[in-house]
Design a protein around this nucleic acid. Structure first.
Lengths: 145, 145
DNA sequence: ATTGCAATTGATAATCATTATCCTTTTGCA
DNA sequence: TGCAAAAGGATAATGATTATCAATTGCAAT
């Protein structure tokens, strides 16, 4: 049993939720994949292992993973919410190529500090933020020329 | 005729699009409102002045306003796209209260520079970005105590 | 082990913002 | 004025997500 499963079980227990095969399987498959995955993509993977699982169950399980602190939502604004690992995967922002859709994870500690300062200057206590940087990657720029 | 209308007319002309009463009215009402407005809210306002206008027309007109550079989309991630003025209303980011939903427009030129630098360090040419800072405003913090 | 029951599941219907379709009405121009 | 193309209005379609509900299952107490 890895640490994530441990966290999940503790979360379930604490909230009087049940430990089911479906939830275990969904968590397992989610953990195996790095990067961003949509609910539907995850559902497709889950179906391969157990075709009887419904997609509503996947949506419900993803909510639990978020509440348990194991997953985090990302919204690139294309109408689909994606999910990524949160445990042992510290906060970061995203750099997205408008050409090929490639995404990179980036962090800049100075930006992070300034965000806090900006918020405070307006009397806000910052809890979290989202930052999406859009542009063209090296490859796509070369193709354009 | 104000500058925005001028820009809109030029845009229509340049693209062989027609200048219609509906488009004029929607633009006029959009310009009158400061802040963020959803397509539906705008539709409600438009209906008051001309109940015969359909909401598809409002959606279509908003697209034109964006293409003409007069409006800009904002996505707070709540499933509704909002629109705000773009002309004479330079880029800014948003500071959003998780308590009361209040939003403020903020800019920090140092952050802007750093964003560009971060993107470049990964070989990206930055075209635009979105930054949403979430937290609790002064009011909401006091209420919590 | 068995039971009792609330939590969970799977299938499916419902939502809700946004888009597409389709037919009618206008518009801009000859 | 007449006409082709553009635009509008009504409405159906879309597509991701959520709600509903009957059937099943996990689990604590027996």
């Amino acid at each position: 049993m890895n640490e994530e499963q441990n966290i999940f079980h503790k979360y379930l227990e604490k909230h009087d939720l049940r430990d089911t095969l479906q939830r275990e399987l969904i968590l397992q498959i989610f953990l195996r994949r790095e990067g961003h995955i949509s609910a539907e993509q995850l559902y497709d993977l889950v179906k391969k292992r157990d075709p009887s699982i419904g997609q509503a169950t996947v949506y419900r399980a993803l909510k639990l993973l978020i509440e348990a602190g194991l997953a985090r939502e990302i919204d690139f604004g294309d109408g689909v919410i994606r999910y990524e690992h949160k445990y042992n995967h510290p906060h970061h922002d995203h750099l997205i190529c408008r050409g090929c859709g490639k995404t990179l994870e980036v962090v800049d500690s100075v930006i992070e500090k300034l965000q806090k300062r900006v918020a405070e200057s307006y009397g806000f206590e910052l809890t979290d933020h989202e930052m999406y940087l859009y542009g063209y990657c090296e490859n796509c720029r070369q193709k354009r020329q």
